[in-house]
Nucleic acid binder design. Structure first.
Lengths: 225, 225
DNA sequence: GTTTTCGCCTACCAATCGGTCAAGCCCGCT
DNA sequence: AGCGGGCTTGACCGATTGGTAGGCGAAAAC
């Protein structure tokens, strides 16, 4: 149902775009994500693409449009992307699927995701900001619906639904700040780990694990950063 | 031990600074936080303070120094701030105290916190960035130490320590994106709720709560955003 | 074979950027 | 009264910003 072209590096939803346009969007996304909207000049984008600055204006009307195509264009269908990846089943498993699907989206459209979230507060276009807020709310409300289902089904405690949603989304939204695609696990695996921690809790209820007196084994726990 | 002056609006660690300097730091912090470093011009800061642009250069050598005083100066002692607020007691309670103290720091130095975290990737000063990384690592390693203690004491399961730390820090670090000081609970209360969710887990183990067949009551669950 | 179209570039623009400078204002000290 | 010095200013600087004008060259359309 949801069709996402992946012709070039994490640039989604850019149907019928030429290779050059896709290249510009990819480079611009990477720059916007790492240096911010205001920190990225049109010259930066042009140099990164190996083209002249004027050519950017041949393909896009202005800087704002490039950003819009990167941020809004690529994040257009996050809600649909996630929704279509949630199977039937117990609500808690649907929450897990929600988290894994969101992580997959993050992995696939990483630069656009970061560019979109880092410039969230100071989007120059008020209308676009509102539209993005609307989509974000729809996405968040969808998660809250799943949580409520899980409560109604008795799978999870009668917790504060919005707050629970925020906890879950925090774990996913903060990932771009520490995730390293070269090391560690995949975003999907990380999401799965986070779900396990949040759902089952950290508390040792004595059902498993070593007795506390035993020295913790020298497992490969040193790794990581 | 740790002395944090609070003479003006969330501007910490600026001993022996004149009112004017404190005003500049406060306004600059708010602007850096909302519009970013590159999105904030010296003129913006001057106008916000109701002074001339030149006066900024009388009190600070350049834009970078203002940012440094806001971001680094105010976040200088996060580690000490938190450490000194963690009581003796069971490791799990120390983790809770860690979260609550971090939330308190966020509440007190909110703009500086946001300005510091949003501009994290593209700090113009390499040396300062490195120093900030070092402090961040020390802060994070401190939390990991607490988690390891809790595991050794058998209070929490034998989870992946770095990943657990990231989950906890995510819930705190993402707060600035949705927290509204006018509504909702205090950051400290929110941190406490998050600790409860993560520590005890969301899963309904049947020890409490309503039976699943009963319709969930029309509690004040609509509220919030 | 000519014309149109499209991708692309060099040269340039006004506006704004961070930053400088010399001179005024205003205060307490002598 | 005079004077010294910190606070404050408007005018100005070169560099960089987003954006524009006009032309070149090849390929497609006629």
């Amino acid at each position: 149902m949801v069709e996402l072209s992946t012709t070039r590096d994490g640039v989604a939803n850019q149907a019928e775009a030429s290779d050059r346009v896709l290249q510009i969007l990819a480079e611009a996304g990477r720059l916007f994500a790492t240096k911010g909207f205001d920190g990225t000049s049109m010259r930066d984008i042009a140099v990164a693409c190996g083209i002249s600055k004027s050519l950017l204006y041949h393909h896009f009307s202005n800087k704002d449009e490039i950003y819009a195509r990167v941020a809004v264009g690529s994040t257009l269908e996050l809600y649909l992307f996630v929704r279509d990846r949630i199977p039937d089943g117990p609500p808690s498993e649907r929450i897990r699927a929600f988290m894994v699907a969101t992580a997959e989206y993050f992995r696939r459209y990483r630069w656009a995701w970061i560019a979109s979230t880092t410039a969230f507060w100071n989007d120059p276009d008020r209308h676009r900001q509102k539209e993005r807020m609307t989509r974000r709310d729809r996405f968040e409300n969808f998660l809250r619906g799943l949580i409520q289902e899980a409560i109604d089904a008795g799978e999870i405690r009668n917790v504060d639904v919005p707050m629970t949603g925020r906890l879950i989304l925090s774990s996913l939204n903060w990932m771009h700040r520490w995730y390293n695609p070269n090391k560690s696990a995949t975003p999907e695996q990380i999401a799965d780990i986070f779900f396990d921690m949040v759902f089952n809790g950290l508390r040792n209820d004595g059902s498993a694990g070593l007795p506390p007196t035993v020295e913790t084994p020298k497992s490969p726990r040193r790794k990581a950063r």
